[in-house]
Design a binder for these strands. Structure first.
Lengths: 173, 173
DNA sequence: CCAGAATGCTTTAAGCCTATTCTATTCAGA
DNA sequence: TCTGAATAGAATAGGCTTAAAGCATTCTGG
């Protein structure tokens, strides 16, 4: 099922992406946003490709398992939804798949019969450990164009972006 | 059809997002990536919501029209695909919709009967101008937590990320 | 106790997106 | 000229995602 070379992975990315069309008089913020989007998509695309080619999985599946790995006691559906920043219905679908594949289990909650905890199975834990190693390697490689100092600066600047965006998102409607 | 408040827009975003679970020993690059992803999703979600609520459209539709607005002579399908960083089949679908709505037109190319140019119609141009104004306002607002100096620093750092990620994406398979 | 509100999760319908395959056309070389 | 490769775009199948609506359970205040 796995192919050695993926069209998306090897297609050269030239200088005419979304951002390139930005004109000199475009507002600085707009250019910044386009660049953020391009960077994220570039990295995300690569991760999706690798996960698919090497492990036959997808980013959302990996993301869900990643959350569970950090919480061995399990997480409720709505907690997963919030942490993954996706809708509840979406989590239901992804969880269904992982349960079917035996990577994850729904544990009933006697205290609240509407809810249950989602947990990695032993099989799921092992599978995730393998994938996580690859994942981190890819990320480190993709971001290795920056020095340690620049990593920190970028982290700090994005912290400000995040804080401000979170603030305005909930209040300003 | 438009509701005054969207569930997604008003749902408070608390401190337990994807990134929060990152542990101290997680690699710096990994934390940086998670934060990039969170920031982008935060802003993108807001833009999608606004486009839907105020203009009844979607981000990909807006994105396609935005490319055309910058190229009044029109763009071929594969050019749109490359600039938007999405697959060709995807562009076909979005273009079909916009054509049906009269916002965009396919102009045959006598020189190559396989291809044509996609152009904004007059109606499309007017519609886009309205949306673009709102779009820029939202972006400027969302990024207004940073000073002009910080905007520039962030832009520079992301330029390095972009360049490095583009480089490795095509070679390292 | 009990009715109505709130909560946890699922379902549904519709749109986005990709990889892959297909068709029509153009190009390149014998 | 003619044939095979390359290119432009469309069609298809499958997965992700959302908003909205639905179902069951729990909570709350009278």
């Amino acid at each position: 099922m796995l192919r050695q070379t993926a069209p998306g992975a090897s297609r050269p990315l030239r200088a005419s992406d979304r951002e390139t069309a930005a004109r000199p008089h475009d507002h600085r913020a707009l250019r910044l946003w386009l660049r953020m989007l391009t960077c994220t998509q570039l990295i995300e695309r690569r991760i999706r490709n690798e996960l698919r080619l090497r492990f036959g999985t997808t980013l959302p599946r990996f993301d869900l398992m990643s959350q569970l790995e950090r919480h061995p006691e399990g997480l409720k559906m709505n907690e997963l939804s919030r942490r993954m920043m996706v809708s509840g219905g979406n989590v239901t679908g992804i969880t269904d798949q992982l349960v079917k594949e035996g990577l994850v289990e729904r544990v009933p909650q006697p205290s609240d019969r509407r809810a249950f905890r989602i947990r990695l199975t032993r099989t799921g834990g092992k599978a995730f450990a393998e994938m996580a190693a690859g994942h981190e390697t890819w990320i480190v490689g993709l971001l290795s164009g920056l020095t340690r100092r620049e990593h920190q600066d970028l982290l700090d600047l994005l912290a400000k972006v995040k804080q401000h965006a979170m603030g305005t998102t909930q209040t300003d409607d």
